[in-house]
Write a protein that binds this DNA or RNA. Structure first.
Lengths: 230, 230
DNA sequence: ACAAAAGTGTTAGGCCTACACCCATGA
DNA sequence: TCATGGGTGTAGGCCTAACACTTTTGT
């Protein structure tokens, strides 16, 4: 079991897939971290990740990690950068293909052990193992860029949401503030939202309108050359 | 020399870096391809690329490949995607970290052997070895997206260029046509171009104005939150 | 002389931004 | 009653897109 059975003519790096899992609680962006139980960096927090099996793609590997930690199997998982620094892992040469995942917090299976896996608000993330600080920075940047041009934000919200929740999400990710009326107008004019339910009888002025992302409408617009922009 | 000296407890994929090298001849985007001299895919065209050494990063590897084929050592080289399909190489499991490079054709050292390395206009690229067709599609897409928001186009033009050349470049990459006056106005208003030389005495109406990309001006604007958009 | 390249300005419409008040609810 | 959240409209400025003619040169 511990023999060195896999031999090559030239040195091969190990390949891992890491998964930066983003969630949104209505106010802040959150990231799921795992406390390392073994050396190196024992006791430090890191992203879920692991060695890519010889018969799976990096994306399958990242999705496997995601499923192990959250129980989710149909979330968005996308590769964003491959980290290849020579000494990023003290054990051996390890190349990691970094992914981010977008999940709805409500759908995440509660972790069995809060000591081991924990959600951190963006502002409370501790210093991480390996080069994961750098990976996080790049993941956040990538998320910022992509949400400007693609409707990935909806993957972090419940199916049905209010305009205020949507605005909070954009503001949290982009770290800016929008004028509420302008945000409403812009979003509604885009034509990619549908009112989820007609307002109930007893709807008061205070009851917010619920929306749903209209994926087919978006696909249609996109095909016509429409581009989302924030 | 042919012994299997590098042994691991678990199987390790091989890791390569491939380099999609883009040039621009004033009219079309060109790509440098290498004719494979050995199996697999012997005789087919492919991107320059090779196995990552155990003490170099993927980017260093891609730059090494670029230098070998073009003599250039200071061109833009950027990773854009890592391809991990299980059967993408028939010999063994190979993960490739794909890069694109932007070079000025005038600075490229003429290849010794046109049989082996050759520039292809985008429309004349043959079907490629491995999954390089897919890699090319993604590289072109990535180039399209990036040129919309970052001034990378200038890396493909001579230091000094005319507005028409710049417009041709944008049109070739984005596969659209712009109105000449609107393109002039927009570019000039951005404030990132400098006139290269005062127009000479004998300048006729027909002599085009020469421009130069003003990188420091761009950096300054960018810091103020300015974003390039096309 | 004819074709091709380069320079140049205006107008209309759409989009973005800034901005304020009312109502209902729950504490 | 007070603070909070939610809904709503308009006016000005800027940017975009559409559009044509003149000059020069080379063939």
């Amino acid at each position: 079991m511990s023999e060195l059975n896999y031999c090559y003519k030239y040195p091969h790096p190990a390949v891992t897939a890491d998964c930066v899992i983003f969630g949104f609680d209505g106010v802040s962006i959150k990231v799921l971290l795992i406390k390392r139980g073994i050396e190196p960096y024992k006791g430090k927090w890191a992203f879920p990740g692991g060695f890519m099996k010889i018969d799976e793609t990096a994306e399958e590997c990242a999705k496997r990690e995601l499923a192990e930690e959250t129980g989710l199997t149909n979330a968005i998982v996308e590769q964003f950068y491959t980290f290849t620094d020579v000494n990023r892992d003290p054990r051996e040469r390890v190349v990691t293909i970094a992914h981010y995942a977008l999940v709805r917090l409500a759908e995440v299976k509660g972790g069995d052990d809060a000591e081991v896996a924990q959600w951190f608000a963006q502002s409370q993330i501790p210093s991480l193992a390996f080069d994961h600080d750098r990976i996080l920075r790049m993941a956040l940047n990538c998320l910022k860029e992509r949400i400007c041009f693609e409707p990935i934000g909806f993957e972090l919200l419940p199916e049905v949401f209010t305009m205020t929740e949507l605005q909070n999400l954009y503001e949290a990710i982009l770290e800016v503030k929008f004028d509420r009326r302008n945000f409403y107008n812009k979003m509604l004019k885009l034509g990619i939202l549908t009112e989820a339910e007609p307002r109930p009888e007893n709807a008061s002025r205070r009851t917010p309108t619920k929306y749903r992302f209209n994926a087919s409408k978006y696909a249609e617009l996109k095909q016509k050359g429409f581009r989302l922009e924030f």
